[in-house]
Design a protein around this nucleic acid. Structure first.
Length: 578
RNA sequence: CGGGGAGUAGCGUAGUUUGGUUAGCGCGCCUGCUUUGGGAGCAGGAGGUCGCGGGUUCGAAUCCCGCUUCCCCGACCA
C-alpha cells in the first residue's frame, strides 16, 4: 500500500457534486484531466478490470467473440451508413495534418463491425455471429455531468450480432439479454429493462437497462401490476375509445354549459411560466393548454396543432416537424399565443389533442387568444374549440393509466446502464456488401442486433448504490482487492508485524490482498480502509493477538468479529463467495 | 448553445465590497522527537507567476477590459 499510487483526501474536490464522484475522487480511483475526461488510477483500473472480466465471462458463455476495433474511423463509412448527419456535432470529423482523409473518433462501432463481419461471414454457414469489444468511445458531449455519469470519453462494452433472419436475430437478442441479466446480477445492481427510443442506432425493438437512482438523467414509467415499463420518452398512456370520448364530450358540454370564455391581458412572451405568473396560477400548470404548431415533413403546407396540458411535454410524431420563425410570419399565428380557440374558420389546420385534456378543471382551461398579449380563460374542449383527433401525444406522468392493464403508472428516475437494440437491416441495407449467401443460393442482408454497456458509467453507478458515510462499499465481485490487511501498532510490536506479514503471504495464495504497510496511526489506517471500500478488512493488532485472532470486518454488513488465525483464510473464503 | 456560479500551494479555503507590510489558515507533504484501536502532539521545514493577457495606479489577489478553464440549471444526449 505504501507503493500504491493513491492518496486519500479528507475533503472532496470542489468540482465533485454527486456522492459517487466525491468518493471515487477522495479515494483516488479517478482523476479528472479536463471536463468530461477522466483517468483511472490504479484502484479504479482494478475495479474496471473486475467489471470487464465479469462481462467477458458472461458474453463468452453465450458464444460472443471478443475482438478489438479501432478508435480511429474513416468518416467514409459513416457517410456510407448515412449516420454522419444523425450524429451531427456529437461526431466531430477531423483531418490529420498534411493528410487528405477525414476521420472520426468512434462514438460507437456499428459501421466497423458490419464492415468486418461482411468480409468474413459470407455464408449462412458462418452465421449467427456475435462480436464484442471493450473499448474507449469518444462523444463530444455538450455538457458532461456528474463525474463519470456523462463524459466525453467513456469505456463501453459493445456487442454486435449478425443473423440470417429476423427470427434468428430475436434469438440472438434473447441470448444477450440473458447474459446481461447475469452481468448485472453479479455487479449487485438491480436493473429494469424498459422499452426505449432507439435514436441514432436505429431499429425497432430496443431496451434500456435502467438502474433507479436520484442522479439519473432518465425517467421511466413502471406499472407495478402488469410490469409494463418504458422510458418516458416513448412511454404510452391508455388511449380512450371513441365511445368513451363521445360520452365525455357529452358530459363536459353539459357540465360547463354556463362557463363563458373570457379574454385576459397577459403581456410577455406567452410562455406557460409567465402567463401562470400573471394569472397567479403557478401551481396549477395543468389548467393550461399548450398548443404546439407543427407542419408535415412531406407536405409543408399542412399545419397541425398538438394540444396538451400545460404541465406536460409533447411527443412529436415522426411525420411532423416544428414551425419555424418564418412559418409563424407566413401563417399569421402569433408565437406564444396560439390555440385552437377563436381561430379563423378558414384557417386550415388539423387539431390533435391528448386524451388527458378531457380531465377538464373546474373553471375550464387557459389557452392562447390568437392575439398578441392575450389569453383566454374558462375554455372548455369541444364546447369552445373543435378537435379533429385524439392521440397519445403528451408525456406520461405519475398516476396516468397503464396502456396494458389500466392501473396506475409510477415514474422512476434512473441511470441508463446499458442499451440493446434489434436493429434489423438498417446497416446491412445501407452498407456495401453487407450480405451473405443463403442456403437457397440467394443473397441476403444480415439481420443485426447491437448491445452496449456503459462500463465506466457502471463504476459511478455501483459507487452511487454502494456506499455509506465512511466511504465506498464494493460488492465483492468488483472490489479492487478482496481483502485489505491493516496491522495496527506494527512499528511497536514485532509480533504484529511478523503475523501480518505471514497472513499476507498466506492470503495472497487464495485472493487479491492489499497490505497496509504504511505504519500510520490507527485512526488513519482504519478510516482509509473504510473509504477505499475493499469488501473485507482484516485488522491485526496487539489486542487481537492476545487471543491469537485477527479482527474481520465485512464492509457490506459492517459486522466485526474476531477470528482465530489458523482458520482465517478459510473464514475469509467463505465470506467472499457470499 | 442560453442562464447562473466559481478559479488563491496536491486538496479544502480566508482575504476581493473599501487597492497599501513578506498573501493567511486547515488537511496533506518533508525532518526530528514523543505518541498509538477511529483521521495524534511538539519543534523545525518545503511548496504560490493569486487562471491567462492587457489596462488604471506611486502601488493590484483586490478596480476596469478581453480571454480561458471548471461546476450547476436548461437545450442536446448513441
Amino acid at each position: 500500500m505504501s507503493q500504491l499510487l493513491f492518496r486519500t483526501l479528507r475533503e472532496a474536490p470542489q468540482d465533485a457534486e454527486v456522492e459517487s464522484h466525491k468518493l471515487l475522487a477522495r479515494a483516488s480511483y479517478i482523476y479528472r484531466l479536463s471536463s468530461g475526461v477522466y483517468n483511472y488510477l490504479p484502484l479504479g483500473q482494478r475495479v474496471l478490470n473486475k467489471i470487464n472480466s465479469i462481462i467477458r465471462s458472461k458474453l463468452d458463455s453465450v458464444g460472443a467473440q471478443e475482438m478489438f476495433m479501432s478508435v480511429l474511423q474513416p468518416v467514409d463509412i459513416w457517410d456510407e451508413s448515412g449516420r454522419s448527419a444523425d450524429f451531427g456535432a456529437l461526431l466531430p470529423a477531423f483531418q490529420l495534418e498534411g493528410r487528405s482523409g477525414h476521420y472520426v473518433l468512434g462514438p460507437t462501432h456499428e459501421e466497423v463491425a458490419t464492415r468486418i463481419v461482411s468480409t468474413y461471414a459470407k455464408s449462412y454457414k458462418d452465421l449467427p455471429v456475435t462480436i464484442y469489444q471493450i473499448q474507449t468511445k469518444f462523444r463530444d458531449e455538450a455538457r458532461p455531468r456528474f463525474g463519470l455519469l456523462r463524459t466525453k470519453e467513456l469505456i463501453m462494452c459493445d456487442a454486435y450480432s449478425f443473423d440470417v433472419s429476423k427470427e434468428k436475430m430475436v434469438d440472438s437478442y434473447e441470448k444477450l439479454r440473458i447474459a446481461y441479466d447475469q452481468i448485472f446480477k453479479e455487479l449487485d445492481l438491480e436493473v429494469t429493462p424498459v422499452e426505449a427510443k432507439s435514436g441514432a442506432i436505429g431499429g425497432d425493438v430496443n431496451h434500456e437497462y435502467m438502474v433507479p437512482s436520484p442522479i439519473g438523467e432518465d425517467t421511466f414509467v413502471s406499472c407495478f401490476s402488469c410490469g409494463y415499463s418504458a422510458n418516458t420518452e416513448i412511454a404510452k398512456k391508455r388511449n380512450l375509445s371513441q365511445e368513451e370520448i363521445d360520452s365525455i364530450n357529452k358530459s363536459i358540454t353539459e357540465r360547463f354549459n354556463t362557463l363563458i370564455p373570457e379574454e385576459v391581458l397577459t403581456p410577455g412572451d406567452g410562455s406557460i411560466e409567465e402567463v401562470a405568473g400573471t394569472l397567479n396560477l403557478k401551481d396549477s400548470k395543468e389548467s393550461f393548454l399548450k398548443t404546439y404548431v407543427l407542419k408535415d415533413k412531406e407536405d409543408k403546407t399542412k399545419t397541425v396543432f398538438i394540444v396538451v396540458n400545460g404541465d406536460r411535454q409533447i411527443k412529436v410524431p415522426n411525420e411532423l416537424e416544428a414551425f419555424e420563425k418564418e412559418d409563424f410570419l407566413n401563417s399569421g399565428l402569433i408565437k406564444g399565443f396560439v390555440s385552437p380557440y377563436n381561430l379563423d374558420p378558414n384557417f386550415n389546420v388539423k387539431v390533435i389533442c391528448d386524451y388527458e385534456i378531457l380531465k377538464v378543471p373546474e373553471s375550464g382551461y387557459v389557452v392562447g387568444a390568437n392575439k398578441e398579449n392575450y389569453h383566454v380563460t374558462n375554455v372548455v374542449p369541444f364546447k369552445d374549440f373543435k378537435i379533429d383527433e385524439f392521440a397519445d401525444v403528451a408525456s406520461v406522468q405519475s398516476g396516468d393509466s397503464c396502456p396494458k392493464c389500466n392501473s396506475s403508472l409510477t415514474l422512476i428516475r434512473s441511470v441508463e446502464a446499458a442499451h440493446t437494440f434489434q436493429i434489423g437491416l438498417k446497416y446491412s441495407n445501407a452498407m456495401k456488401n453487407a450480405e451473405f449467401l443463403d442456403s437457397d443460393g440467394g443473397t441476403k442482408p444480415y439481420y443485426m442486433g447491437c448491445y452496449g454497456i456503459g462500463v465506466s458509467r457502471l463504476l459511478a453507478v455501483i459507487a452511487e448504490k454502494h456506499h455509506d458515510s465512511d466511504g465506498l462499499i464494493w460488492p465483492s465481485a468488483v472490489s479492487p482487492f478482496d481483502v485489505v490487511i491493516v496491522p495496527l501498532l506494527a512499528s511497536k510490536d514485532d509480533r504484529v508485524k511478523m503475523t501480518a506479514n505471514r497472513v499476507y503471504e498466506d492470503l495472497s495464495q487464495i485472493c487479491d490482498v492489499l497490505f497496509d504497510d504504511r505504519e500510520l496511526s490507527p485512526g488513519v489506517s482504519l478510516a482509509d480502509a473504510d473509504l477505499i471500500g475493499i469488501t473485507l478488512r482484516v485488522v491485526i493488532s496487539p489486542k487481537t493477538l492476545i487471543s491469537e485472532c485477527a479482527e474481520v470486518k465485512d464492509r457490506r454488513t459492517g459486522s466485526i468479529e474476531l477470528v482465530k488465525l489458523e482458520v482465517l483464510a478459510q473464514h475469509l473464503s467463505s465470506l467472499l463467495v457470499e
